[in-house]
Amino acid sequence: MTAAAAALKEKGIDVIALSQGEPDFDTPEPVQNAGIAAIREGKTRYTPVAGVKPLREAIRQKLIRDNSLDYDIDQITVGCGAKQVVFNALFASLDPGDEVIVPTPCWVSYPDMVRLAGGEPVLVECHEHFGFKLKPADLEAAITSRTKWLMLNSPNNPTGAVYSKAELAALAAVLRRHDRVHVLADDIYEKLVYGVRFATMVEAAPDLIDRTLTINGVSKSSAMTGWRLGYGAGPIELIKAMNTIQGQTSSHTSSISQYAAIEAIGGNQNYIGDFVADFEKRRDLVVEKINEAQGLRCRTPDGAFYVFVNCAGVIGKVTPQGKVIETDVDFAMFLLEQFGVAVVPGSGFMASPYVRISYAATIEELQRACGRILAACEAVCESEKTYEQSKATA
């Protein structure tokens, strides 16, 4: 969708992109300055694969401060974004045929990462009426003798769902009956929550610390997507294996990014409150407008910066161009090609018929985009009426 939107923009067509998975804020100035200082101080050479010690110590203190998790520094590894840390963990631990439970809707990369590492993704649908969250009974039903990991992403991309501490504890009660199953807790959107308290798995179930990998990073919370820095904390043998794999692939992430991340993780983070306040206003605008659109509905997400929109009400309808909207991909392409709004089809997140709208855009852009989406839905519904009338006449 991003490529298609860019191609239309190159032709001079006005396209509003709501497909982006990154904050639209600049990296905070103190973090920028820390990176610049690292360059000027000559911190531009190879670093240990696991990351420089001052960064890993900053991460260690962050986990104590924010999550009540206490790890030794050697239980912490730094990678080229949280994405690489996830991949390293899967590659280090999966044997051919091992299963990984992936609650859906899920981030698009999870199933393919599992396959690349030789495993089998087991997709477990999390229904909208349960808040897009995994239920303990569904987790129990999905576990087999080959299950190696449960992947949990909270706040979730694409739904914005946030698991409470009690909900995580209920899942942990199931996991205690299956000591072979490990937990990969992807907390990358941790700081972006609205009116709810964030909790991570080991905080809810401290006894699972020896089989949980907690993953986070600076891309979302500090608007540092391009700096490519994520981290993981977990059992020492797993971390060692992950470091071995990373040592033969990327070695380490940018030294400059590492020293900037020390400031992002350990420095003043008042800017995060500003980010959250802005995102919450944008979220409320999008939710209100989308729920006014004919054929669309959405929940109010508790975290991240996405609204996951149910578009079942427009499936099967006919566009003014005479094309039947058969899938969420068709609807997304209709929005893009006829109304200049780029969203992401839910099928990419293993959930249909939905589309994901990112509200990491200005209020003005969101207002214009929502106006176009409402107009698109109205056009489809009017076209459907005309189509049905013509059929009746015939």
Rank of each mutant, 00 (worst) to 15 (best):
V355T: 10
T249Y: 12
V286L: 04
V343G: 04
I315E: 00
F331W: 15
F305G: 05
R299G: 08
V318T: 15
A332H: 09
G266R: 00
S251M: 14
G266N: 06
A351L: 08
Y259E: 06
V309M: 05
E288Q: 11
N291S: 07
P353M: 09
A351H: 11
D328P: 05
Q258N: 10
K289W: 06
G295D: 05
I256P: 15
K289R: 13
M333N: 08
I272R: 12
N270G: 15
K281R: 12
G346N: 03
T300F: 00
S358I: 10
I272D: 03
Y271G: 07
E326A: 08
L285A: 08
E326P: 01
G313F: 00
M350T: 08
S254L: 11
Q321F: 06
V314M: 02
G313M: 06
D284C: 02
K281F: 10
A261P: 08
C311S: 05
G247H: 07
V276C: 13
N270W: 11
A332T: 01
R297W: 12
F334W: 07
S257G: 15
V355N: 07
V355F: 03
T253C: 15
K317F: 01
H252Y: 05
G247Y: 04
A260T: 02
I272Q: 15
P301Y: 00
Q258H: 11
A260R: 03
I290C: 05
S250G: 13
A277C: 10
V344H: 09
E280G: 12
S358W: 04
F275S: 04
L285I: 10
V341Y: 14
F331K: 02
T327D: 01
P301H: 07
Q294E: 13
D278G: 14
Q294F: 02
G346F: 13
A312V: 06
R297T: 10
P345K: 02
Y354R: 00
G247I: 14
V329R: 10
D278W: 11
I265V: 14
S251N: 14
T249R: 12
F339I: 04
D330K: 05
P301D: 06
G316Q: 05
K289V: 04
D328H: 02
Q246E: 11
V307G: 03
A312N: 10
T319V: 06
A260P: 06
R282C: 02
D284V: 01
F334A: 00
G313P: 09
I262V: 13
L285M: 12
K289L: 04
A293C: 14
I245S: 09
A304H: 13
V324F: 03
R297V: 08
Q258C: 01
T249N: 10
I315W: 00
G322R: 02
H252M: 11
